[in-house]
Design a protein around this nucleic acid. Structure first.
Lengths: 204, 204
DNA sequence: CCTACCGATCGGTAGG
DNA sequence: CCTACCGATCGGTAGG
């Protein structure tokens, strides 16, 4: 029988991830120090290095856990046997509510990817590209004539992500609008504007 | 007769601002060092400190020059005696093309405001809030029934800014779509979706 | 799990 | 006395 880790190993690791995410989201990766994180956990720096070999590995754990769950949720939604616009609505709802639930992780994903070592950074990028491509597929179903122009597929998908992602630089749960309502307004606004878009622009 | 500054004082200052903007946009404020900036200018650190009393003052000069010009352009557009939707189109065009022209400054405004001293940071925020309020005014003109709900005014304005701002994390001039076309597609998509938005949501 | 350190590198400033 | 720089080095702090 192999020696096992402490039974609360994963729990303690998750505490570090959560506390670190809060600090890094607030101050930025390079301003938040490992000593800050240690104090927030009520532990020493050495405690952190027992669980994560480097500060970058801690960052990677934060963003990887988050984006992996998000991508899995979105993949599941796309497989449902529903009309494209309904799947689109569920996609936006899942993305927005996921980001609202894990606001720290979302902000870090937006701001601090550049601090990851190349290989880890590329892996996160790959998952982001996959989510963009899922969205491009949905948009092709919703407005095939417009999306027949290949050069427009990624831009339109990224405009939608812009609305959703930027939201969390200003959005507060305590505000006047719930995550569910916000998701619904975003998805209705985008889908109506997108369907009304002519295949070629009328003005120059 | 008072002694004057070197005649090329302002030009040299502008060179520092431009080189620093390129480095800070690429690496982030705290990763880009004053030595990096000095080398990019072909000068010493002391040269930089002759023009800017601190690294933060250099950052402030970059974002202040940019946002001031941007706010002035937008204010001028709003005063034109044109229908609301046309002013909206011009606003989006000016914002997007301004950001495309000064991509470095735009990225810094998005990522590095947190490094400014409080007073300077508040001043930039104030200008950003003013731009948001200009947009809220336009949106009230375009869809008065929807915007009668006060709690929705800022969220809708910020969703539009999200589309425009996020663009420049992925947009490259050399891409398949010009800044002018991008601005037009954003403004058409948003205005159509926004006008179609019902005053109260149909689903829950 | 802690204290005591290290090699390095930062922003800012000295004399000339 | 000023402005416009340079080579060198300061005190303090980061990740490890």
């Amino acid at each position: 029988m192999t020696r096992v880790r402490a039974e609360d190993y994963e729990e303690k690791k998750q505490i570090i991830i959560d506390k670190a995410a809060a600090l890094i989201a607030k101050k930025g990766f390079d301003v938040a120090t490992m000593l800050d994180v240690a104090k927030a956990c009520g532990a020493s720096k050495s405690h952190l290095y027992h669980y994560f070999p480097s500060k970058e590995d801690l960052l990677y754990a934060i963003v990887h856990d988050y984006i992996t769950h998000q991508a899995a949720d979105l993949t599941r939604i796309l497989k449902q046997p529903l009309p494209a616009e309904q799947r689109f609505g569920l996609f936006v709802d899942s993305f927005v509510q996921g980001a609202a639930r894990a606001r720290n992780e979302h902000v870090i994903l937006m701001n601090d990817l550049k601090f990851l070592p190349r290989a880890q950074r590329e892996h996160i990028y790959k998952l982001e590209v996959e989510m963009t491509q899922m969205m491009e597929g949905l948009l092709r179903e919703i407005n095939p004539r417009l999306m027949a122009e290949e050069r427009l597929q990624t831009p339109y998908a990224l405009l939608l992500f812009g609305m959703m992602i930027w939201t969390f630089t200003w959005y507060r749960r305590s505000g006047s609008i719930s995550p569910k309502e916000l998701a619904l307004r975003i998805s209705e606004l985008f889908v109506n504007g997108f369907k009304a878009q002519p295949p070629t622009l009328l003005k120059t």
